[in-house]
Amino acid sequence: MDIKVSVIVPVYNVENYLKQAISSVINQTLKEIEIICVNDGSTDSSKAILDEYQKSDDRIIVVNKSNKGYGAACNTGLKLARGKYVAILESDDFIDAEMYENLYSLAQSYDADMVKSAFYEFSDGIGSSKINWSEQYTMPDKVFKLEEYPQFLYFHPSIWSCIYKTEFLRKNKITFKEVKGAGWVDNPFQVQTLCLAEKICYTDTPFYNYRLTNPSSSSNIVNISNPFDRSDEVHAFLEKKQIRNHGILANLYKREIGYINKVLSGVSDNLFDFACKKITDMIARMDSDIIFTHSQLNDYEKYVYKSCKSYNGIGSLMRQIQENCESIKIVSC
C-alpha cells in the first residue's frame, strides 16, 4: 500500500479515551494510512486496548517502550513513519472522519510542507465548539509563509490539527525535545515547523476535537519550568536561524506574556522566588521597541511587561491576577 499519511498516536494511561481516539483514526475516509501507536509505558489497560485494535486492523503498528515522555514517544513514531505526510493524534482526543482526506488533498494540490486546520474544543457532557480564529484575524486563503500571517505563533500550538510533509521534517531535522511527561514540547515543534516551512496551507474547516476535560491533559502546567524552558529553546532556535521578524517576535511575546499570566495565577508561595527569576529572564529577552510599538501587543500586555521588570512589580501583578481568577496551585519546578 502506498501510505499517504502516517498517524502517530503517543499513548500514556488514557484507557478512558483511547478507544474513541483509535476508532476515529481507523474510520478515516482516507484509507491509505498507517497508525503508529507508541505506548509510553502505560500502567493502565491502554496496552491491552491497543493490542485488541491491532488484531483487527493491519494498518496499526504498536510500539511498547519504557516511559520517556510525550516527545520521545512522538520521535519514535517519526522514525518509523513511511507515509508521505505525518500527523499526530493525542490519545485523549478524536478526529472527524474526513480530516486526513481533506488535509492530504490540500497538501497535494499545493505541494505544501504543512497543512493546518481550525479545530474544536471538546468538553465531556457539553460537546464541541469551534475555535474561531477567523473572527479575530484575517486568515490565509492561499499558500503562505509565516511572515505573512505570524498570528499563528500566538494561537494555541495545536500541532495535531496539521499534517507535515515527512521529507520536510527530515530534511530540516525537526524532532521533539525529549523531557519528562508532556513538558510543553509542542511549543518548539510548532515554531520550528512554521518558521521553516516554505509552503503552508490553512483551512478554516475544523476536524480535530481537542478534549479539555482530561485532568491529565498535556496543556496543564504541572512543572513551572516547562513554559520558560521551552521558550528558551524557541529563542535559541530563532537566534540560530537568524529569524528576527518583528511580526514573529511580537506574536511570540504575546503568547509568552499569556504564559506569565497563567503561571502567576497559580504559583504556590514556596515557588514565587523561582518564578520571579524565570519571569524576569523571559522579560529581559524581549525587545521593548516591539512591545511598545507593534499593534499585536495590547495595553494590558504592555502593563504586564512593565510590571515584570521588578520583584515587587511581579508580586503586585500576581495579587491582581489571583484576585480576578480561581487559581490552581502549581507546586513543582
Rank of each mutant, 00 (worst) to 15 (best):
V11K: 10
E15I: 05
N16Q: 06
K19W: 03
A21Y: 13
T29M: 02
E32W: 04
T43G: 05
T43F: 12
T43H: 08
S46I: 03
S46G: 07
K47P: 08
Q54W: 11
K55N: 06
S56R: 15
D57K: 07
I60F: 12
I60C: 09
N67C: 09
K68L: 07
A73I: 02
A73V: 01
G77V: 12
G77M: 06
R82V: 10
V86A: 10
I88K: 15
F94W: 14
A97Y: 05
M99I: 04
Y100C: 02
L103G: 04
D113Y: 06
S117L: 11
A118S: 15
E121T: 11
N132R: 03
N132Y: 00
W133Y: 15
P140C: 07
P140Q: 09
W160H: 13
K165V: 02
K165W: 00
T166K: 11
F168Q: 05
L169D: 07
K171N: 08
K171S: 09
K177Q: 01
E178K: 08
V179P: 03
G181C: 02
Q192I: 02
L194A: 11
L194S: 07
L194H: 14
A197C: 11
K199L: 11
Y202Q: 14
F207M: 03
Y208H: 01
T213M: 01
S218V: 01
N220Y: 10
V234D: 04
F237S: 10
F237M: 15
L238S: 00
K240F: 06
Q242H: 10
Y253G: 12
E256R: 15
L264M: 12
S268Q: 11
D269Y: 15
D273W: 03
M282A: 02
I283S: 06
A284W: 02
D287T: 05
I290Q: 04
T293P: 01
D299W: 13
V304M: 13
Y305W: 05
S307L: 02
C308S: 03
Y311G: 00
G313W: 14
I314L: 07
G315N: 14
M318Q: 15
Q320S: 06
N324H: 15
C325P: 01
K329N: 07
K329W: 09
I330F: 07
S332H: 14
